[in-house]
Amino acid sequence: MDSVDVEQFVRDGFAKLEGIVPREVGDAARALLWQRIGLSPDDPSGWTQPVVWTSDMTGEGPFGQFMASPKLHAALDAVAGPGGWHPRGAVGNIPIRFPRVAPADDRGWHIDSNTMRADGTWGVSARPATLLLLVLFSEVGTDDAPTRIRAGSHRDMVKVLDGKQVLDPMKMGPIFDAAGSDRPLALATGSPGDAYVVHPFTVHAAQEHLGTEPRFMAQMPFVLTKPLSPGGDTPLARAIGW
């Protein structure tokens, strides 16, 4: 099953997965999320915050269908190797971005925490134990706050990380700002049921919602069965010259 463009993932540090579930499954997930946040798609007067967080912690209904998707599993096998990642049953945290309000101050360039310290906290290192998945539950066009991605920035980021240290991403703003700053900009657009698999070193950022309809998208780590390290033979390793 050709569920992911592996060569694009190696080159750009991300790849789009179209329709890991049917659109109606994404629509059903979005309907549940509206219920959970107590707001209505038909009443913009309640859209007063730029970001509202909710979650799926049980894999209920359509969320479980996303996580069990054969197309998703085939894509993860393709980039991390069969048996190279741990399945997850629930989506986890889900930020919903709303239009027509002042944007949140959370739009800086970054990579996600990817390494657990001995005390159970997480930071960033050159031996990541996760890869990132973005999942769309709504239509996301260029004005609908799609995640910004610096295509190819994973190759810049790996050069500045120390394999022996786990760093605090909150203190790495200037490093993130510089990494891949001259790279092409891509936008994670798509339809309900689409997803993006993203290399743990690929620099990305949120952005202001300039559209008209709220954007529903999850961003979740998939834990690798062993940390990424030099000498690996998967596209995850090949993408950064390892």
Rank of each mutant, 00 (worst) to 15 (best):
T202D: 06
S3E: 03
F66V: 07
Q165W: 06
K164R: 14
H209Y: 03
H204E: 06
T142H: 09
T189C: 14
N114W: 12
V25K: 00
S138C: 05
R11N: 10
R238H: 12
S40C: 08
R97F: 03
D156N: 08
R107A: 09
L228Q: 10
A28Q: 13
D182T: 14
P62S: 07
R150T: 05
G81K: 03
A188H: 02
G211D: 03
V135F: 09
V203F: 01
P169M: 09
G211F: 04
K164F: 08
A31H: 10
T202L: 14
K226L: 10
I175T: 14
G64R: 04
W47K: 05
E139I: 00
E7H: 12
L236N: 01
D119G: 10
L136G: 02
A74T: 09
V101R: 08
R238N: 08
G92R: 08
V140H: 04
L17G: 02
W85Q: 04
D177R: 10
M1C: 09
S153G: 08
T212I: 10
P230K: 07
V51H: 11
H110R: 12
I37R: 02
M57N: 12
P192H: 04
L185T: 10
R107H: 13
F201L: 15
I175Q: 15
A218S: 14
H110F: 11
F201D: 01
A75K: 01
R30D: 03
S69H: 01
M157K: 07
Q35N: 12
P184W: 06
S181I: 14
D106E: 13
T115E: 11
P22E: 11
S153I: 06
S55T: 13
L134K: 00
L33G: 00
P128Y: 09
W242A: 09
T130H: 09
T142R: 12
S40H: 04
F9V: 03
S181L: 11
T121R: 14
K71R: 15
I240R: 00
F137E: 07
T234S: 05
G241P: 13
H73V: 00
I240T: 11
P82K: 12
R117H: 11
W47T: 02
Q207K: 05
S40I: 06
R215A: 02
H86Q: 14
